[in-house]
Amino acid sequence: MAFKQASVLPGFNLSFGYTIFWLSLIVILPLTALVVKTTGLDWAHFWSTVSDPRVVATYKVTFGASLLAAVINLFTGLLVAWVLVRYPFPGKRLIDALVDLPFALPTAVAGIALATLYAPNGWIGQWFAAGTPLGNLFGPEGLPLAFQPIGIVIALTFVTLPFVVRTVQPVLADIEQELEEAASSLGATRWQIFRLVILPTLWPALLTGFSLAFARAIGEYGSVIFIAGNMPFKSEITPLMIISKLEQYDYLGATAIAVVMLVVSFALLLAINGLQWWSARRLGRRN
């Protein structure tokens, strides 16, 4: 395939050049600077920084909590999108606008609000505190929500809520009613129609929403630090490690950790994109 193909649309050279220039300036340049800066560190130092047990623990917390939050949003986001698309109800526009609020709110505000709500004496946290009926279900200490890894998941779920909803919503709205009617006339039950007809059509959009939510959660800092409790080896996230290294003027150490995050995130996003490409191909959009 030739790199440039004849097309009736003019301006390929200009627009392609502009795109590359812009991406270089905004994305590739800072990231390259990051990698270049890290090379100031020799391999042994680099390795000892990024494989420090305390740092390794933060990888697990960050990627684990992000994955969990994205999975939760996969289901709840689909549900919210479903309700918003399928049913007419009073206040629908208001609820629709509400979905975007986690985007608009400063993340620190979200973090403080969530920490207040889920603290052992907060509105929600108190129901799960030690000695309460709900708390006793989880053992003698109750279920502490804030200042625990679970608090990180709560904060990330909140912050990444809009992604799945907003990617699935238009696709769901575009599904022709006739497909469901056809399936129904062939004897399929509601559940079979959802599982065999609707879900496969939504897969690419769900995956997109999932990967966006996941990527956003990995980099999230502001809302998490207020609710996480930041206990070493337990509820510290990787971005916090980077900030604390910066505060100690350990710029090289901070960039080293950042490079590890960058590489892992990129690999994960690439894998999800591959999955997406594969499922879109199966939807008959190939030729």
């Binding site: 022709e176 006739e178 497909l179 009617e181 056809a182 399936a183 129904s184 006339s185 062939l186 004897g187 399929a188 039950t189 065999l196 007809v197 496969p200 059509t201 199966r282 939807l283 008959g284």
Partner: peptide, 17 residues
Amino acid sequence: SERQVGFVFQHYALFRH
């Protein structure tokens, strides 16, 4: 789904996937 009718739509309504 219980009427045992075959329905053919103008725009086919085939399952694309």
